[in-house]
Structures are given as C-alpha cells and as structure tokens.
C-alpha cells in the first residue's frame, strides 16, 4: 500500500515536471517520414569528412543537437540521454550522433565535450560538427534563437530518430524518460507501434505508459482509476456486510 503511495507521488511530481515543458502537442509529429538533409559531417577522432548518408546507412541514428557553450539544457540533456541509454537493454541497432548547431564549435571543443561526459571511447557515440547546419536544422524542424544579451542560444532539447533509409521516424522534444527513448529506438528499427501518446499537460491520469522494450504498455496511474469502481464497490459491500452481520448475529 505504502509503495503504491510513493509510486503515485513520484508520478505526480513527474507530471508537474512534464507540465513545465508546455510543448504544443503535435510538434513532435513535424517532419515525420521526411528525409534528413544529407550534410557533410566532421566527426571527432576521424580525419575525413563524410556525408550523413554513410552514417545512417550503417546503423539507424539518434541525433542530439547541442552546443558546447550551453549554460542551459544541453548538459542535463546529455547526462539524461547517457543514463537512460545505459538502462536500455535492447538487441536493436542504433548509434548516437551528438552534433553541434553552433558555428563557433570545432572538433576540439566537441572532443572536450565527449571527454567531459566520458564518451570519447564509447563505440556507439559520435561527436561531430558540420558546415551546413542550417540545412540540417531545416530538415528536422529545429530553430534555435540567438540571445545576444545572454550570449546563448534559446533552444529546445531535441532528439531525432533516423532510420537506415534516412527518414525521420520519431522526434522527442524535452528531457524524456527511457520509455520514450526505447520507443524511438524501435521506430528507427521499423517496428510497428499501433499507437502512442502525445506529450500532454498532465500524465497523472494516463492509463498506460508504452514500454517499447517489450512492445507492451505498462500500467499508469489512470489504470488505478479504472479499477477504482470495483475497489470501492468491494469496500462498500464489505462494510455493509460487516454491519449487517452484527445485526444478523444479534437477532
């Protein structure tokens, strides 16, 4: 019982966090099944310039857009991504491309970023820059705004899932749970998902959280509400039965 309470409390907190993002519900559906711009990439620890195409043909890509001088979301975003991916035990194929959208970044600064997150030797992780960032931004619907006073980009945390044909199969906006990441990994590996939930203001009352690992939905707090009528009925009847029982026995 107590564990349930904690469970509900955590979900309540989570839902208020989600509420802060306040994204328009259909933004994540933008650019779905459009082709990613085939920009040239310079990848840390590699000498050549290679086209994006070579990357996704080799393995589906999860693209994270960041800039190294970010004092806002980029760091927590990458930490969360790294941690979540550690939890995910999947046999599915994927690689992560961390790409800078700031023209001030170079291979050196990206290499430092990789070292800072201890990802410089991780096989699945690639850190890169490109000279055609605008084309890429346009193709994934990403529009960072330069704030000249704070000397920072105002931008959202965006993950883009790209399948081996180079199509955008799934987008995630904001710092998201590993369930959503798994759903992305399934999508870029062409696994059919009959349905999914759009990011909403509150998830406290949603019935199911999709678990892409098993392809099943796991119960959410809403499900507790669905069984509530049966539960309350049982309590009422037990209560009435107890009262009537004393009357029955005394008579």
């Amino acid at each position: 019982m107590f564990r349930n309470f904690i469970f509900v409390a955590i979900l309540a907190i989570q839902s208020t966090i989600n509420a802060q993002h306040n994204i328009s519900t259909l933004d994540e559906e933008k650019n779905i099944y459009e082709k990613i711009s085939n920009v040239p990439l310079k990848i840390v620890n590699r000498d050549d310039v290679r086209k994006f195409e070579l990357l996704y043909k080799e393995k589906p890509v999860i693209l994270a857009l960041v800039f190294t001088q970010c004092s806002g979301i980029c760091n927590p975003f990458l930490i969360q991504l790294k941690n979540s991916l550690q939890f995910i035990k999947t046999d599915k194929n994927y690689q992560i491309l961390v790409l800078s959208f700031d023209s001030r970044d170079n291979l050196e600064s990206m290499s430092k970023l990789a070292k800072r997150f201890e990802l410089d030797n991780a096989i699945n992780w690639k850190f890169a820059i490109t000279d055609s960032i605008q084309a890429l931004n346009n193709s994934v619907g990403f529009s960072p705004l330069w704030d000249s006073i704070r000397k920072q980009f105002d931008h959202e945390a965006l993950l883009v899932g790209i399948n081996q044909e180079g199509y955008i199969a799934k987008k995630l906006i904001g710092v998201r749970s590993h369930y959503d990441l798994e759903l992305m990994i399934r999508s870029i590996n062409h696994i059919y998902t009959p349905s999914y939930k759009l990011p909403a203001k509150n998830s406290l009352f949603s019935c199911f959280n999709y678990d892409p690992l098993t392809g099943k939905n796991t119960p959410g707090t809403g499900l507790l509400i669905i069984v509530l009528p049966a539960f309350i009925t049982a309590i009422i009847i037990l209560f009435v039965a107890l009262i009537s029982r004393t009357k029955r026995l005394s008579s």
Binding site: S203, F205, C207, G222, I226
Partner: peptide, 16 residues
Amino acid sequence: NFVNDALLMKNLTYFF
C-alpha cells in the same frame, strides 16, 4: 488548468 485524459475517460464511461 486541469485536463482529463481522453483514454481514461472513455474507459470509465464504458465501464459505467
């Protein structure tokens, strides 16, 4: 400020 979940409401509606 509070928006219900359409799926939950539909489940409950047909439960009833």
